[in-house]
Design a protein around this nucleic acid. Structure first.
Length: 478
DNA sequence: CGCCACTTAAT
DNA sequence: TTAAGTGGC
């Protein structure tokens, strides 16, 4: 009787329902019952899902750290090589045979390919007589639980979040207990090579390991949590939690974040900041639920089907300028350079750059979504897709199409002294606080910095007209 | 069915 | 302040 925990998007020991359950089942069996673990490397699949080198290196580093910590508990973690999800089924089967596995435990993932893979594994393992058990781990309120009065999924955030908060008050989620040592420590396995194509990543953004993740979380809640509401929109400030790489790859769970934040609230301090931050955890749960209820969003389809008729511009020089941070709009360029150089972008700037690509350049949101994934260390399908579709007005709870961020206005509001711009677009560093937001407006543009590649006013008007035409078309069809 | 509220922009 | 719009109660 050996239990196998299959780690995927949950690279942690604490608060891990699959791991806790496997250990419990082993404890209830005879003395010799063992717990093993595995992680499957599927680099070709990662490539296909646009995983960034930064993310792959983060995952490998943290899988190694996980193997080390599990080894101390007497739980050996095996690394299994498979190119794609479809190969991982046979590889897993082979591993289970060699290690006389009787039960397989894993936490659910909600992308369409992940779901297909898990279904195929269950089907095959049913034939083999190996029990599979899956757990709803990724959200604070188990995915699918939060529904309207008519038991329908929510498609708008605000009512979802109200229901979510009351669910939490009623259910008081707790973390799953971390398992105790199950015997002598074992020698940990280790991945030593970075898969081909993922070698070239920016330096690691955060420290490695679960302990480091928890310190980062605690430090944020204690030092910056209270000011979060007022500071989170200013990219030059250290106002955000910076835990997204951990969260996106399961080194921290949403539950742990929520419980830690509520604890910090209980200890006094500014409540409003933490309320706002908890709302961000709700956004994450919301988008995971959307992915779960509407699989089309992970099949490159718009949440609002009628927006599929939009004729996006062919991506050419404009798309290149956006990617490389050479649009002539300082805040957009600063943000894109931050992304390219660090694998991370401030959240407000994700909205600003996404709106600029989809509304001002009128380039397909799918291209932006894929580009972000290919660079972000915290690239997470549900949130990235949700955010892009929100910005493009093709998604749930979309920004009304006539509301287009003006990137220069955003710059004046959220980087008033141009500090963030100066850091990432050094050629503009000498401009004064007024001119730095739009150097093309009067005066000489510093050498090498481009003029804006589009007219903001004009392009905004055109985008709104295209959405308006779509709406008129829709009404004629009714 | 009428109303509230909205990761907000433009005025 | 208002509102080119609208989901959910």
């Amino acid at each position: 009787m050996t239990q196998l925990v299959w780690f995927r998007n949950d690279l942690r020991i604490a608060d891990n329902p699959a791991l806790t359950a496997a250990c419990k089942e082993a404890d209830q069996a005879e003395n010799t019952a063992k717990v093993r673990a595995c992680f499957i490397l599927t680099p070709e699949q990662w490539q296909e899902h646009d995983w960034s080198p930064a993310r792959v290196q983060f995952v490998i580093t943290h899988a190694n750290a996980l193997a080390e910590e599990l080894a101390k508990l007497g739980i050996p973690l095996a690394f299994i090589q498979a190119e794609r999800f479809s190969d991982s089924i046979a590889a897993l089967e082979n591993h289970c045979r060699k290690n006389s596995i009787s039960r397989l435990h894993f936490n659910e993932e909600y992308g369409i390919n992940e779901r297909k893979r898990d279904k195929a594994v269950k089907h095959r393992f049913d034939e083999l007589g190996i029990t599979t058990r899956k757990y709803r781990d990724q959200t604070v309120a188990p995915v699918g639980e939060i529904r309207t009065g008519q038991s329908e999924p929510y498609s708008v955030f605000t009512p979802f979040s109200r229901r979510w908060r009351s669910w939490i008050d009623d259910n008081r989620p707790a973390v799953y207990p971390a398992p105790k040592a199950r015997g002598d420590a074992v020698q940990p396995e280790r991945i030593t090579n970075i898969p081909e194509g993922f070698e070239d990543a920016p330096p690691a953004l955060v420290k490695t390991g679960e302990d480091a993740a928890h310190s980062q979380l605690e430090q944020f809640l204690n030092k910056h949590g209270g000011a979060y509401k007022d500071q989170r929109d200013f990219p030059a400030l250290d106002g955000t939690s910076q835990i997204s790489p951990y969260l996106a790859n399961g080194v921290l769970s949403g539950r742990q974040c929520l419980i830690a934040a509520r604890q910090a609230q209980g200890m006094g301090g500014n409540q409003e900041g933490l309320v706002t931050w908890i709302n961000e955890i709700a956004w994450r749960d919301f988008y995971i639920n959307i992915l779960y209820h509407y699989p089309r969003v992970s099949m490159h389809r718009a949440f609002k089907p009628e927006t599929e008729a939009l004729q996006w511009n062919t991506p050419g020089e404009h798309f290149e300028a956006w990617k490389t941070g050479n649009t002539g709009i300082p805040l957009v360029d600063a943000a894109m350079r931050q992304l390219n150089q660090t694998g991370w972008m401030h959240n407000r700037l994700r909205m600003v750059t996404a709106m600029f690509l989809t509304k001002n350049l009128f380039i397909d949101w799918r291209l932006g979504e894929a580009y972000f994934m290919s660079k972000l260390v915290d690239g997470f399908l549900a949130s990235n897709n949700g955010g892009w579709q929100w910005s493009a007005s093709t998604g749930t709870d979309a920004a009304p199409y006539f509301r287009v961020f003006n990137p220069v206005t955003q710059s004046e509001r959220f980087d008033p002294k141009g500090e963030f711009i100066r850091e990432w677009v050094p050629e503009l560093a000498k401009l004064d606080n007024k001119r730095i937001h739009d150097p093309s407006k009067g005066g000489v543009i510093p050498g090498g910095y481009p003029r804006p590649i589009v007219d903001l006013k004009e392009s905004r008007k055109e985008a709104i007209a295209k959405f308006q035409a779509l709406k008129d078309q829709d009404e004629r069809n009714m």
